[in-house]
Nucleic acid binder design. Structure first.
Lengths: 228, 228
DNA sequence: AAGTGGTCTAGACCACAAA
DNA sequence: TTGTGGTCTAGACCACTTG
């Protein structure tokens, strides 16, 4: 019982007390030292357990203020963002890829704004289609800083998505979901009706300067899942 | 510089080596003991730093196998799920709420399936509209296990969303996003055109038995954001 | 000013998987 | 078998923030 995983046992016990309201919502719970004494373990172990719960939004901790059960918990949902090809393979299907266009173009103001200062006036504009078992899966519409990928880097067979993850990953950025109606071009490329509701994922990445802004538009019916 | 935050400094140094490819993609990095000696800190501190990077998907760690920089990193994006009212307030707007319907109905097979075993044949079906500055913000379409909330619990002023978070939070479940076209009823309730693309969030929660299945349908243009 | 969580350390033992 | 990460401990000092 005590060998390892001790901090998880402490976490589970704390979770039980939260669920059963033995620790009331909004109220302070005993401090780490007391809990350690009560549960017969080191304070560091209690700290590990409570920190874990706090990261999940199930506890609120403050120096000097103690630890509380929040009245209105803000739960955290984690989504895994993999390469599109891996995403398709994980579903047990066969990935495919087709480059649609790749040329230098003036950057639209909206894109330049989201990328922020340092955005070139012209960037590489790449569009591509990802296939799953031969059917359209996702449309990739990307603006790529030409200083990041030399013109020699071609995306005929390796998607920009994959190249970037392998070469310029580990960069910061933002990510957002929204829904949009398929315009005639989307409809033609994804093989759906114009006006169909499509899930879109916008992502921008940069390190010292802007790297890329991409919109992934998924075929109708696509879902993004997670557990709580 | 050295007082506290030492593990974050170690994490940042590791991150720098990953970004600069001083640690190559796919290759093993030095073990914790070596890094601790090199950086002049305890092994536990290195462990904390590398564990943090591994949780973010930037490193892969295995007992006996050592720590590696993954070839195809799977990044993790975290979304905060708050009460809708809090969500609206956080945007600096004034929340509003209107209950549309609340009655016991037979559960549609699709809902029963997602809730799994133990789903009653009849559940409380609640629909409500959340407002932001008086404008439609989000439609709540919920099936609620009547064993969870007594009929005396009314949702005229307090939304089921809020009641559940305050009373039956800390439960497990699943969560998914998708896009759908507004049907005429959605359009009337949200004040948008029929066919408009809407972002929908499906969530199911249960502890020992099913608690609730809810679909939140957001007004057009809604975005769900996070950072990387 | 003082109480509480945040972190560091040095040492130890254990669990797991690779050699 | 053995090397590596996972975890625990006891003690210490520090940072924050509340009263």
């Amino acid at each position: 019982m005590q060998g390892s995983m001790r901090w998880q046992a402490v976490r589970d016990e704390a979770l039980r007390r939260i669920k059963t309201r033995q620790w009331e919502a909004g109220a302070r719970i005993p401090d780490e030292a007391d809990l350690a004494a009560e549960l017969g373990c080191a304070r560091a172990t209690v700290n590990r357990a409570l920190r874990d719960l706090a990261e999940a939004g199930l506890l609120e901790r403050r120096r000097r203020g103690g630890t509380r059960v929040p009245l209105n918990p803000i739960r955290k949902a984690v989504f895994s963002i993999a390469i599109i090809r891996q995403d398709i393979e994980a579903r047990g299907q066969t990935p495919g890829y087709r480059l649609l266009s790749d040329c230098i173009e003036p950057v639209p103001p909206l894109i330049a704004e989201t990328l922020g200062a340092g955005t070139p006036n012209e960037m590489r504009h790449i569009t591509a289609l990802h296939l799953s078992n031969g059917a359209p899966f996702c449309l990739e519409d990307r603006w790529l800083n030409p200083e990041i990928a030399a013109p020699e880097v071609r995306f005929e067979t390796l998607s920009a998505n994959e190249w970037l993850v392998q070469n310029r990953s580990f960069s910061t950025g933002s990510l957002s979901f929204h829904a949009l109606n398929a315009d005639p071009q989307h409809a033609a490329q994804l093989g759906c009706s114009p006006g169909a509701a499509l899930l879109a994922l916008d992502r921008t990445t940069h390190d010292t300067r802007p790297i890329t802004a991409v919109r992934l538009i998924y075929a109708p019916g696509h879902r993004i899942d997670t557990n709580l």
